[in-house]
Amino acid sequence: MARQSLVAMISDDLLARIVSGEFEPGSTLPGEQDLVTQHEVSRMTVREAVKTLEAMGVARIERGRGTFVNPFNQWTSMEAVLRATSTGENDASASIQLIELRRMLETGAAELAAERLSIQELDLLREHLASMRAAHASNDVGSFVEADLAFHDVILHASGNVFLAVLFEPLSRILAARRTQTSRVPQIQANAIEEHAHIVEALASRDPERSRLAMDSHMAQTLRDLTTYVLNA
Rank of each mutant, 00 (worst) to 15 (best):
E79V: 14
F151M: 04
G31N: 09
A197D: 02
A109C: 10
E201P: 14
S217Q: 04
F68K: 04
V69T: 03
P170K: 13
N70A: 10
L98Y: 04
L117F: 10
I99E: 00
G57Q: 05
A137I: 09
I193L: 03
S20P: 10
L171D: 13
D12T: 08
L156K: 08
D34A: 15
L171C: 08
L53F: 11
E89H: 15
A147L: 11
I188E: 09
E201F: 09
F168V: 09
E40N: 14
L35H: 10
E32Y: 03
R178G: 00
Q120W: 11
L53S: 03
R3H: 10
P25C: 05
N161S: 14
R116D: 02
D34W: 06
L213W: 00
G64V: 12
L175P: 04
S159G: 12
E106C: 06
E40Q: 13
V145I: 07
I119R: 11
A192F: 14
I188P: 11
A197P: 10
A202K: 00
A110R: 00
N232H: 15
L129P: 01
L226I: 05
V230H: 08
T87S: 06
R47Y: 09
E48V: 08
L122T: 06
P71Y: 13
S27I: 11
R178V: 05
T28R: 14
R43T: 12
A109Q: 04
A49M: 01
F23E: 01
A2H: 13
E32C: 05
D207S: 10
E209I: 13
A92K: 15
P186Q: 10
M1N: 13
D216A: 15
S143R: 11
I18G: 00
V7P: 02
A177M: 14
S20F: 03
I174H: 02
A84R: 01
L122N: 11
N70P: 03
S143A: 15
T227G: 08
L171F: 13
Q74N: 07
E24I: 09
V145G: 02
A49V: 02
I193H: 02
M56T: 03
A134D: 08
A59T: 08
P208R: 04
I193P: 00
S118D: 07
L82C: 09
L223M: 12
I155E: 00
T52W: 05
E54Y: 06
D153I: 11
D13P: 12
A94Q: 01
A94V: 06
V141K: 03
F163K: 10
G21S: 08
L82A: 13
A49E: 07
E201S: 12
V7W: 01
V166M: 11
L171A: 04
N232W: 14
R103D: 08
Q33C: 03
E40P: 01
S95I: 07
S205L: 07
G108H: 04
T228D: 09
N161D: 12
E62W: 13
L122P: 02
A214S: 02
Y229K: 08
S93M: 11
E209C: 11
D216F: 07
R133K: 15
H196P: 05
V41S: 07
Q74P: 06
A137M: 09
A204C: 06
